[in-house]
Design a protein around this nucleic acid. Structure first.
Length: 271
DNA sequence: CCCGATTCCTGTAGGC
DNA sequence: TGCCTACAGGAATCGG
């Protein structure tokens, strides 16, 4: 599933293929998504140049000559540039033909993602309003987590997966980071020390950085590549390893639902 | 405000 | 082999 590292990898892979290129035609085969793609945007989009690709949280932002495209990959979405003769796959919902001959395709089987156009002068979608700091920025640190969590009874895992706390931490990275920091995922966020939050923040950063590095190696080929996730899975320590042994102490990893999400952890190593 | 529960959707895995 | 169900997950929104 596209988490922050995969979104960032997508951004880096696509940038040299689309930057400075004009959108010649747009085709919408399926518009029902988390928020619908409006076909009336098509005439406005055609003829515009993609000036850049930026990322905020798990959103890709593409400033155009006029306005901006805002794309979220949800949990099954992907965005690729392919040769125009490559067959359209099931769930390739949107196609953008570029003036360099490539076609940028938005693919999303579960349709939890979205592609929105913000017209010039229009208020940006409220989707970006309440986002917390980027985990790889200076603004994100143990101090931030500590301050924000005081008095909160919410499980720390749900707390760090909340996008208003910090963006980009999904179930995988929350699970891995908590294991590395030795913190039990169900512990009340407000009852964790500053020192432990310093450690947790560092592990969140490190886990995301490493995943971005791994993602870069398997999602490299945006022209013909497979674009499928799986790159980081060999290195996972707890996520998806319920019933297997803890790499640190050898005990059996357990799974419990915390904040409506399956949470795997080591009861011996995490307190 | 806080927080748990619900909702959207389809591919995949597991049970029988 | 095939059918059926449960589950996965990002994040907005609802309800207590």
């Amino acid at each position: 599933m596209p988490e922050l590292p995969e979104v960032e990898t997508t951004r880096r892979g696509l940038l040299p293929l689309v930057k400075g290129h004009r959108i010649q035609t747009v085709m919408a085969h399926e518009t029902r998504m988390r928020w619908p793609f409006e076909p009336r945007w098509i005439p406005s989009l055609q003829g515009q140049t993609i000036l850049d690709i930026r990322r905020r949280a798990k959103y890709l932002l593409m400033p155009l000559t006029q306005g901006e495209l805002l794309i979220h990959l949800g949990m099954s979405g992907s965005l690729r540039c392919v040769q125009p003769d490559s067959p359209r796959r099931k769930h390739d919902h949107l196609e953008f033909r570029l003036d360099n001959g490539l076609v940028m395709r938005f693919h999303d089987p579960r349709r939890f993602g979205c592609v929105l156009w913000q017209a010039p002068g229009e208020d940006p979608p409220a989707l970006l309003d309440r986002l917390g700091p980027e985990p790889l920025s200076e603004a994100f640190c143990g101090q931030h987590l500590f301050q924000l969590s005081r008095g909160r009874k919410q499980a720390v895992k749900a707390f760090i997966m909340d996008q208003t706390t910090v963006v980009g931490v999904g179930n995988i990275y929350a699970s891995e980071s908590l294991f590395l920091a030795g913190i039990h995922p169900a512990r009340a966020a407000g009852r964790i020390s500053r020192k432990r939050y310093d450690l947790l923040a560092e592990h969140i950063r490190q886990t995301l950085r490493r995943a971005i590095e791994s993602g870069g190696s398997t999602l490299r080929d945006f022209l013909g590549g497979n674009g499928e996730p799986g790159y980081f899975q060999q290195t996972l320590l707890v996520y998806g390893r319920e019933g297997q042994t803890c790499t640190r102490c050898g005990n059996t990893l357990v799974s419990r639902t915390i904040g409506q999400r399956a949470s795997v952890y080591c009861a011996a190593c995490q307190h």
